[in-house]
Structures are given as structure tokens and as C-alpha cells.
């Protein structure tokens, strides 16, 4: 065991220096959300459940054409989720409202990736295959992806799906926010262009927030007084307003804190500039040095100690 005193103090010096800087740097977590992203406002009171958005999405993203039931009513019998063959699906919910004939009034809700402002999936992705773009789109780069599916674990909306039946080159599949379209001037996401009732409104997120707020204030009683996605999970590019509570249409109750904040804080305070491993290394080195010194008189340094390790 060759550990010189000089060597040891050098290491310790670095470690202490790092240790003092590191936590300070990591403590101030900064949102990495783009300043003026696009968004899409989903007004559930307007959606008529025609599922044209599903069709359009499949078309512009070259996915299989969605199942067309003989009548829309049968397709809505099961609750569907976006999967590897559909980036978006519309579900029907009966939330207890009835009309004057006592017929239950359905609420239709489209689901897709929310394009979170500080996305859990982006923070989680081991290789950074997922990124939050300036446009607001959370993009997936298949060339980096290794298929660990941690993004799927992380996403609070349970959105990313996986091509489980592709043995060698499976992809994570989720709404792209039609990046290729919206990044062009005047481009629109496929689903929004087709929506016959403009239940989907595409625009700058800030504009949409104002607009949503206006709808809420101008139609008191029509809407639940809440813009889903304004704050949820730190804010999302897709926003929802609704006449029925959001939990009833399977939009999860989420904290306002961005999902990655806690884990990134912990990670960074522990590991920024690798201060903690270096400190630990130094500490253990010191202990080892100490114990060996103490034992030296008894045991001459030999090849044996090393071999036994």
C-alpha cells in the first residue's frame, strides 16, 4: 500500500474546496423551460368526440389508421390510452351530469403528451434522447435512445409508450407536438387543424393562457375555475379547461412543483463537481492510511495484502 502523506493532503484539499462550492451551486434549481413556447388549449366543453384528431394525428405522423367502430359509441366503451400505435386518443366520460331528459351528458377528453414545461421524461432520460425544444415540443431522438424506459417511469401523465414487440429497434412513442410542422412558420399540429369545433386551439402558450382565463371569467358557471396545465407539474404546454372536475376525465392531480426539481436538486447537491465522491474518497483514503500506519510495525508491507483484496 503506497500512499504518501503529500499525496493524501492534495486529495483532501481538492475535496474540501469542492465540497464548499458544490451545495451552493446546486441549491438554486432553475427551470429550463423555454421562454415563449407554443401550446394547445383543449376546451373539453367543445369537444364532440368525433375522433378526427386521432385520425389526423395518425395521418401526419404515419401511424396506423385508428380503429373506426361501426358507431362511435362502441369505441368509447373501453377507456383507451395513447400507445405505440396512437399518439393521441379521445375517451368519453360520464361524469354524472344529465340533461333535461335525464340522459347522461358525456364529456370527451383527448389525451396526448402534455409537453411539460420542465418534463420529467427529459430529466430522466439517461442519454438525453428527450429534449424540450424552444417551440415547446418535447422531442425524442431515437438515435440516442437505449430503451431503458425510465422516461416512461418518470412521466406523471403516463404518456410515453413503447414498441414492446420490436425485438431490436423499438422506439418510445409519444405525441411529437408535430414538431416538424409547428417549427415551420404558420405550421399547425395535425390534430388542431382538423378539429371541427376548435376544441383544440393552437397558439403561443401565453396567449392561450390569457384566452383560457377569459373564457373562464366570461362564462362563469360553465367552466371549472381552473386551467389544467397552467401550474400542474410546473406547467405544461397543453392546457385544458373543462366543465367537469379534471379528475373525472382522468387528468391526474399533480403537485405544482416541476417533477424533476426534487431529484435534480438532490442529485446536484450530492454530485455536482463530484464533490461528494471525492470527499468520500479522501476520507476513506485517510482512514486506510491511518489504519495501515498503525499496523505497520506489526506487519511489513507485503505482496500478500494486495492480493487478498
Amino acid at each position: 500500500m503506497q500512499l504518501s502523506r503529500r499525496h493524501f493532503f492534495k486529495i483532501m484539499g481538492v475535496a474540501t474546496a469542492t465540497a464548499t462550492v458544490a451545495p451552493a451551486a446546486a441549491d438554486t434549481w432553475q427551470s429550463k423551460s423555454p421562454p415563449d413556447p407554443f401550446g394547445c388549449l383543449v376546451d373539453l366543453t367543445r369537444c364532440v368526440g368525433c375522433r378526427k384528431c386521432e385520425e389526423a394525428c395518425a395521418e401526419v405522423n404515419h401511424l396506423p389508421t385508428p380503429e373506426r367502430a361501426a358507431c362511435q359509441c362502441t369505441i368509447f366503451e373501453k377507456k383507451r390510452r395513447p400507445d405505440d400505435k396512437a399518439y393521441t386518443v379521445v375517451n368519453r366520460y360520464f361524469t354524472g351530469t344529465v340533461d333535461e331528459n335525464d340522459t347522461p351528458v358525456p364529456t370527451f377528453a383527448k389525451v396526448q403528451c402534455m409537453h411539460c414545461q420542465d418534463p420529467a421524461c427529459v430529466s430522466a432520460c439517461i442519454v438525453g434522447a428527450l429534449t424540450k425544444d424552444e417551440t415547446g415540443a418535447v422531442r425524442y431522438n431515437v438515435d440516442k435512445c437505449i430503451g431503458c424506459r425510465y422516461c416512461m417511469v418518470a412521466c406523471p401523465f403516463e404518456i410515453p409508450a413503447y414498441e414492446y414487440f420490436d425485438p431490436v429497434t423499438p422506439r418510445v412513442m409519444k405525441c411529437t407536438f408535430c414538431y416538424d410542422r409547428i417549427s415551420k412558420d404558420g405550421g399547425l399540429p395535425g390534430c388542431a387543424t382538423i378539429c371541427p369545433t376548435e376544441a383544440l386551439t393552437f397558439g403561443k402558450r401565453n396567449t392561450l393562457l390569457n384566452m383560457a382565463q377569459k373564457r373562464l371569467t366570461q362564462n362563469p358557471g360553465k367552466y371549472i375555475d381552473h386551467i389544467y396545465g397552467e401550474k400542474e407539474a410546473g406547467g405544461t404546454s397543453w392546457l385544458y379547461i373543462s366543465a367537469v372536475p379534471f379528475e373525472t376525465v382522468n387528468l391526474p392531480v399533480l403537485p405544482d412543483k416541476p417533477m424533476p426539481k426534487l431529484s435534480e436538486n438532490i442529485q446536484h447537491s450530492l454530485f455536482s463537481y463530484l464533490w461528494s465522491p471525492i470527499a468520500l474518497f479522501s476520507l476513506l483514503g485517510a482512514i486506510m492510511f491511518g489504519t495501515h500506519k498503525a499496523q505497520k510495525p506489526k506487519e511489513t508491507p507485503s505482496q500478500k495484502g494486495g492480493r487478498n483484496a
Binding site: S123, A124, I126
Partner: peptide, 8 residues
């Protein structure tokens, strides 16, 4: 491809 934010 490093994503230092990622615990994984």
C-alpha cells in the same frame, strides 16, 4: 451522451 440530470 450524458444527461447529468438523470439519476439513472
Amino acid at each position: 451522451n450524458w444527461n447529468t440530470n438523470s439519476v439513472l
